[in-house]
Design a binder for these strands. Structure first.
Lengths: 145, 145
DNA sequence: CCAATAAAGGACTTTTTTATCCTTTATTAA
DNA sequence: TTAATAAAGGATAAAAAAGTCCTTTATTGG
């Protein structure tokens, strides 16, 4: 596994896709999303359900329904998505898995891990969900193949 | 989960512990290691077996036996341990889980992730297994509580 | 109103990770 | 040479993550 869980990877890809479509004024259904971000449809449905429930994305039922992001949603940092899926272990936890590791009682990798974590936090906070819309629309960036 | 799997966290803590003991000229048994790095004994045994099999740590059976590291082993980068346990997805894989993501066909987070990955790689390569021996012996760094 | 559509939700199954237990093999020292 | 010790190895079990399927609920347009 990479840095994020598979669930989280799907979530990130999905919100980028939804963002792009929202920018173009369209709502999108899971089927379309799943196809375009290369994820299992039923599983992705669960993930989006969760994000929808906590208000990170919007959804509407019925014909013409689907998932979408309003202006506020598009400007949220990716960190919110990751936190909703992974919890904030990745932002705060010890790199070596020690629960009592802290500044006062550091594990050997404490300092180095802080740098890594800060880099991750920076990335996830500076990246808004809608940040790459134009590049995605232009096809300069990819979400599947 | 943090950045590494639990298995990998145990492995890292264990080799640091073994390193420390080896520095002091002692071999250590799983029971002692498990107690001191707060990990399940039987599970840790499997992990050390694996590391031993690929030659990253040494072991000997019977009374006075145990796990240990020779001078070469103490100087190996922690990256070797992580690679043995996790594979090298963490060093090479796309942060968003896309198999065809590359410089030519990048995912949205490609650039940012490269920085994160490079930081991790730097940390794991600059850290030798024996790097913290003295601090561990002095009790300035911790491996359990 | 009703048929079609799409998300929400519940109940599972599968796979992977984490973990245990018990037997075998090697080594040591008395 | 044998009793004790410690790692190696095999077989399983438990828990968590990933994934599926089917039913329910809400919404729309005809």
């Amino acid at each position: 596994m990479g840095i994020f869980s598979k669930t989280c990877e799907y979530a990130i890809r999905a919100v980028f896709y939804i963002a792009q479509k929202s920018q173009e004024g369209q709502k999108t259904g899971i089927k379309e999303i799943a196809e375009n971000i290369d994820s299992p449809e039923a599983f992705l449905a669960k993930i989006l359900q969760k994000l929808s429930k906590v208000g990170l994305i919007s959804s509407s039922k019925g014909p013409t329904g689907g998932f979408y992001l309003d202006t506020v949603g598009l400007q949220r940092p990716l960190a919110d998505i990751v936190a909703a899926i992974e919890g904030d272990d990745i932002f705060t936890g010890c790199g070596m898995g020690l629960s009592y590791c802290s500044e006062e009682n550091p594990c050997p990798l404490h300092k180095d891990f802080k740098k890594v974590r800060n880099q991750i936090i920076k990335m996830l906070h500076e990246t808004t969900i809608g940040k790459f819309n134009q590049e995605l629309i232009n096809g300069q960036l990819t979400l599947n193949k």
